[in-house]
Design a protein around this nucleic acid. Structure first.
Length: 902
DNA sequence: TGGACGGCGTAC
DNA sequence: GACGTACGCCGTCCAC
């Protein structure tokens, strides 16, 4: 690998000043863009590496500003002729088919350092295209520099000429010299000459400072300055020293160089009137229409191949190698990835060119025999691990779980179209392949029902006639590939690339491991509870029917409503939309308070019915032969970025009531192990304090106060000390109400007070925390103008109904907008923790494993003797997963069952 | 008979 | 007229 790293940001300024002004016909200044295109054209011809990326600064503020506030504080604003060229240069990079990379909080220089390191680690070399002196420290065996303007290499000789030292000593020298332009202080009175001399003599900055301090250096002005400004020198060294630990927004293997699309590049050069570059590249005048029409749309759907020979499979794999990417989609006999058996694999290598490899189908008499899986695995396994071929999935987690269970060891690198869509369009529409095809490709996918039948007539996919099965499967892969070509570039445009690469994609293996591992339940305990609940329900049912004076189905809200409000003539009945009597718990509670015995009995019955059917019986049925249940985490469903859990849902296991807690206690640790629970305390309220910048709330969290008590104190004017539980409870309800986008009606209902009284609470709250109002208004406005809101970590949450003409729907959307950054921000934080935690455990030599995530809680299973260490490490990683303006705190617990681990 | 839907209730 | 986000079970209704 020879990775060429172009310092895009550095180049822009240099080219702008070095190249005379140029404008294109519409008046836009393009001299820097022209310089950039020229440089890239030359680079691609003369110094081609195998991989290439253009690196940019993402914004002005970075971690260095937190370290030293004045850093780069006095950089002048960019000249107005340059400003529009920043975006154009990124566009130019795209036109050349080059990835441009930037990451919030990191300077381009640090990203370059990180990528150079990655190239070395991959056994390759790196070429840094820049003339920036700050990058010279990176020069070492395997890392070279190239001056893009002069087109000359920068090596040890050039570094020595500039700094008087070898590259590995550059930061020592820079620390002494400082940099007036960037506000790096250095030591006054010491310039390049003096610095080189000192470092040449003493070796390092610390040695120089020590010599000055101890008196080993000859007395004089220089020594005095070194003593006085020693700390300045140290901070300077930290500032100029590049960090090579930035997360890589795109894996280095994804930067493989590919030829540009002639039509796209030609169109870009035409728009900017760069005729000379076009000539140099020998680009023809491609008709505009052709350039505008993506190839994905040009190719027809259908006409796919059914692969039944090794020769045909090998040919398709070779085509994938040529392309550098391949879409892969497995077919199984069950929608659940943990049950489904592999029936075949579809591969697509270009729009319209796809094939299906049947492996486990029940063939008809006329069908050619299918390949044997061990043979196919031999060829496909090599493709799956080939770093030069990107494997593209829709729902990679599903595919990988099936492939893993079928014996595939590794699949990398990969992309996931479902997550690519989710990262930029959560809340906008669903991310199943059918919807995406309809939306982005205007193509209606063959439905599964139309191929396999529905209802009683539904066939297992293994029994679907092969021709139809093959066409269905290959089309799925074809569509996946086309969607990828269309959506992947949009990630960068929509600023969702880092979220996708660093959070969503990295979560795939974490969740896969959690799902495969599962969590143990005590089946005997659950069976006993099921029997017990059944008996108690039968007794209660008898009571209810005696009280009601007739037999009826207690489980039917319809019949119950008629009994209560018609036959028995009880007061307080309300009809719903369909005209049915409402019988939910708030209604029954109202009746029970009036002493209506039957209402209380129905509530008791319902609680047991719920626990028996939804939890006890369902979990027994879901447990595998080892007593472990395996949920499936949905990564692209929730509109806020949260995960969800299905088959079974393990994110809504009861805890609040005494009987419910018994269910939670049936979740147990494996023998010799303990369960470790770690949950964020008040994470959404903390995010509210952070994003709305609420001074009093932030202060309260910083002090570690009981936040609900503090709120009660502020809103109701009572002292924190000796506060009664009811007052605190009211304040807690208000705090939750705020997070949910409060309304007086809703809060009143929640608290059991009138809307008037609830409004008074809300007004008092807004008065004590005035910043809330501004946040709510700003967020709603953001949603109206953009259509989406952003979490503090840049996740987009769409709120499509924000401009609906129906006031009711609009109000609903406004509450969604207010809630999404908080709920979504919390999701971002715990996801980052989940990505870090398994690595941290491994590093610490702990074998604790994640088994569940419940929005603000992580549950781990750990050997008994590791539990305490695992709990501490989980706390540390979770608290450090993100940095916001209030502390994040995590509470941990250890127990033999989930109930006791809290 | 089975799929869609509404009512209800569990979690955070 | 339901303060946010989910999923699952049950009964009901209706089409096949």
């Amino acid at each position: 690998m020879r990775l060429v790293l172009v310092d895009g940001s550095g180049f822009i300024f240099r080219a702008f000043h070095a190249i005379p002004d140029m404008t294109r016909p519409d008046g836009v200044h393009v001299n820097a863009v022209f310089g950039f295109c020229n440089m890239i054209a030359r680079l691609m011809k003369e110094h081609t590496g195998s991989h290439l990326a253009v690196i940019f600064d993402a914004g002005r503020m970075t971690f260095r500003n937190r370290m030293y506030e004045p850093y780069k504080a006095h950089r002048p604003e960019a000249p107005p002729e340059l400003v529009p060229q920043f975006a154009l240069i990124r566009e130019a990079a795209r036109a050349f088919g080059l990835p441009s990379i930037e990451l919030d909080d990191w300077e381009a220089d640090d990203l370059i350092a990180a990528y150079a390191k990655a190239a070395l680690q991959a056994g390759g070399e790196a070429v840094i295209v820049s003339s920036d002196k700050d990058l010279m420290q990176l020069i070492r065996p395997g890392v070279t520099m190239l001056d893009p303007m002069k087109n000359v290499p920068i090596g040890e000789a050039e570094v020595a000429a500039k700094f008087g030292v070898t590259p590995d000593k550059v930061i020592e020298v820079q620390a002494l010299i400082g940099d007036a332009v960037d506000n790096v202080p250095g030591v006054r009175g010491i310039g390049p000459k003096g610095a080189a001399e000192l470092i040449g003599q003493y070796g390092t900055l610390e040695a120089v400072l020590e010599a000055a301090k101890s008196g080993a250096m000859k007395p004089g002005k220089r020594r005095d300055m070194l003593v006085e400004f020693a700390d300045n020198a140290r901070i300077s060294k930290e500032l100029v020293k590049l960090r090579d630990d930035a997360p890589l927004p795109e894996p280095v293997e994804d930067l493989a160089l590919r030829h540009w699309d002639d039509a796209v590049l030609s169109a870009f050069l035409d728009t900017n009137n760069f005729k000379s570059i076009k000539q140099r590249l020998a680009l023809s005048d491609a008709p505009r229409a052709e350039a505008a029409a993506p190839k994905a749309e040009a190719a027809a759907f259908g006409g796919y191949e059914t692969i039944t020979s090794m020769a045909a499979l090998t040919a398709l794999i070779e085509a994938a190698r040529q392309a550098g990417f391949v879409a892969v989609d497995v077919q199984t006999d069950d929608r659940n990835s943990l049950h489904g058996n592999l029936l075949g694999i579809a591969l697509a290598v270009a729009p319209g060119r796809a094939g299906y490899v049947p492996l486990g189908h029940n063939l008809g008499l006329e069908d050619t025999p299918q390949l044997l899986w061990p043979d196919a695995l031999g060829a496909l396994g090599a493709l799956f691990t080939d770093v030069a071929v990107l494997k593209i999935f829709h729902d990679a987690k599903y595919n990988l779980e099936v492939l893993t269970r079928a014996g595939v060891a590794q699949v990398a690198p990969l992309d996931d179209v479902m997550l690519i869509s989710y990262a930029q369009d959560a809340g906008n529409f669903s991310h199943d392949r059918e919807t995406l095809a309809r939306k982005h490709l205007a193509h209606e996918l063959k439905s599964f029902d139309s191929v396999a039948g529905s209802g009683r007539a539904r066939l297992s996919f293994a029994n679907v006639p092969l021709a139809g099965a093959s066409a269905f499967a290959a089309e799925a892969a074809d569509v996946t590939l086309r969607l990828w070509a269309m959506l992947k570039p949009l990630l960068r445009v929509n600023k969702s690339l880092a979220l996708y690469e660093l959070v969503e994609k990295k979560l795939i293996p974490v969740l896969t491991a959690m799902e495969l591992h599962g969590v143990m339940v005590d089946r005997a305990d659950l069976r006993a509870m099921s029997v017990e609940f059944e008996g108690r329900m039968a007794e209660i049912e008898t009571d209810i029917q005696r009280l009601a004076g007739q037999e009826f189905n207690v489980g039917s809200p319809k019949q119950l409503g008629e009994i209560l409000f018609e036959r028995m003539g009880l007061p307080g009945g309300k009809r719903g939309k369909a005209g049915a009597w409402g019988t939910d718990s708030s209604v029954l509670e109202g009746l029970a308070e009036q002493g209506i015995e039957v209402a209380q009995r129905v509530m008791d019955w319902r609680q047991l019915a719920k626990l028996k059917s939804t939890y006890a019986d369902a979990l027994i049925g879901q447990a595998d032969e080892n007593g472990r249940v395996h949920t499936s985490f949905q990564m692209a469903v929730a509109a806020t970025g949260r995960l969800s859990s299905t088959d079974p849902n393990l994110q809504n296991i009861p805890i609040r009531t005494v009987e419910g807690a018994r269910i939670r206690k049936t979740f147990i640790a494996a023998p010799g192990c303990s369960l470790v629970s770690a949950d964020y305390s008040q994470i959404e309220l903390r995010l509210l304090a952070h994003v709305a910048d609420i001074a009093a709330l932030k202060e309260s969290f910083a002090r570690g106060e009981d936040i609900h008590a503090r709120t009660a104190s502020e809103v109701f004017g009572v002292p924190m000390a000796g506060m009664d539980a009811a007052t605190r409870r009211r304040a807690k309800a208000i705090n939750f109400g705020i997070i949910y986008g409060i309304s007086a009606f809703g809060l009143g209902r929640q608290l059991g007070v009138g809307a008037g009284e609830a409004k008074a609470y809300i007004d008092a709250y807004f008065k004590r925390y005035p910043e809330i109002r501004a946040y709510m208004e700003a967020t709603k406005e953001e949603a109206r103008s953009q259509g989406y809101v952003l979490t503090p970590f840049g996740r987009r949450c769409w709120v499509p109904r924000i401009k609906d003409k129906m006031p009711q729907l609009r109000a609903y959307a406004e509450r969604q907008a207010i809630n999404a950054p908080l709920q979504g921000g919390a999701a971002d934080i715990i996801k980052q923790a989940m990505v870090k935690l398994p690595k941290a455990m491994a590093r610490a030599g702990l074998s604790a494993t994640l088994i569940l995530q419940v929005h603000d809680e992580l549950l781990l299973e750990a050997p008994d003797d590791e539990a305490r260490a695992a709990a501490e490490l989980a706390r540390e990683v979770m608290q450090g997963a993100a940095e916001i303006s209030v502390p994040l705190t995590v509470e941990t617990g250890i127990g033999k069952n989930w109930g006791d681990a809290h």
